[in-house]
């Protein structure tokens, strides 16, 4: 008997996405939105790392709630994801990501999604990931500030590096990204992730990833 959560999912796609492990680097405006969409799509396992806490100033664009202010973002996100689905195993890490802990955090991931705020952090992550795992995609974002101009949102690709955004919009100091555009780009990242999993499933080498299908099942039985 299929769980009602998956009743409206394509059975073939469900299998592919349930078998995937996706890394999300950052749980802010991009990462919190990406995590929610990938959970709804039925990704089997998410590895998410962030060192920050939820602040009132985050609520204009990040998927947290007023009663979560002060919580580690990772803990708040875990709470929110568990309210959506019990079919995505979450491996949360309350830690700052560096080139030194990148392997320990994300080595089992099929795809890494960059969801940082600062450009120097984006560069660090892209360079470190592409040096270590040149055969695995990294999906990054660049140019998320502002509003409007939907037609400027685009995807550029260079090998296994994908960048989503408008590629030009700089942040005005003191002004946050605005909810619709940052969520749109986050969902473009998530959308591409699902596409790559389907298109590349036959060509990727087998990962040393654990069989989390069994773990998910145990979680269901616990409930």
């Amino acid at each position: 008997m299929i769980d009602p959560f998956f009743a409206g999912h394509d059975p073939q796609l469900r299998q592919i996405w349930q078998a995937a492990t996706i890394g999300i680097a950052g749980a802010g405006g991009l990462g919190s939105n990406i995590a929610i969409s990938l959970t709804r799509a039925g990704i089997g396992k998410l590895v998410i790392a962030d060192f920050d806490v939820v602040r009132l100033t985050n609520l204009n664009r990040q998927q947290f709630f007023r009663d979560q202010v002060g919580m580690p973002k990772i803990a708040a996100l875990a709470q929110n994801l568990s309210r959506i689905s019990q079919h995505t195993l979450l491996e949360p890490h309350n830690i700052r990501i560096t080139p030194d802990n990148l392997d320990a955090l994300f080595r089992r991931c099929d795809i890494l999604i960059e969801a940082f705020d600062l450009a120097d952090q984006k560069q660090m992550l892209i360079e470190a990931w592409q040096s270590r795992y040149p055969d695995r995609p990294i999906i990054a974002a660049s140019g998320v500030a502002g509003f409007g101009n939907n037609n400027a949102l685009r995807q550029i690709q260079s090998g296994n590096l994908y960048l989503l955004g408008d590629g030009v919009s700089e942040l005005t100091p003191g002004i946050s990204p605005i909810a619709p555009k940052v969520a749109a780009i986050a969902n473009m990242q998530a959308n591409l992730c699902l596409e790559l999993l389907v298109n590349c499933r036959d060509v990727w080498p087998k990962r040393p990833s654990e069989n989390h299908q069994g773990v998910v099942k145990e979680t269901q039985e616990d409930k």
């Binding site: 950052g26 969801a115 990054a140 550029i156």
Partner: peptide, 10 residues
């Protein structure tokens, strides 16, 4: 050669 500009925000 590909040169890609990274911009803060996210």
């Amino acid at each position: 050669v590909a040169i890609i500009h990274l911009i803060s925000g996210g």
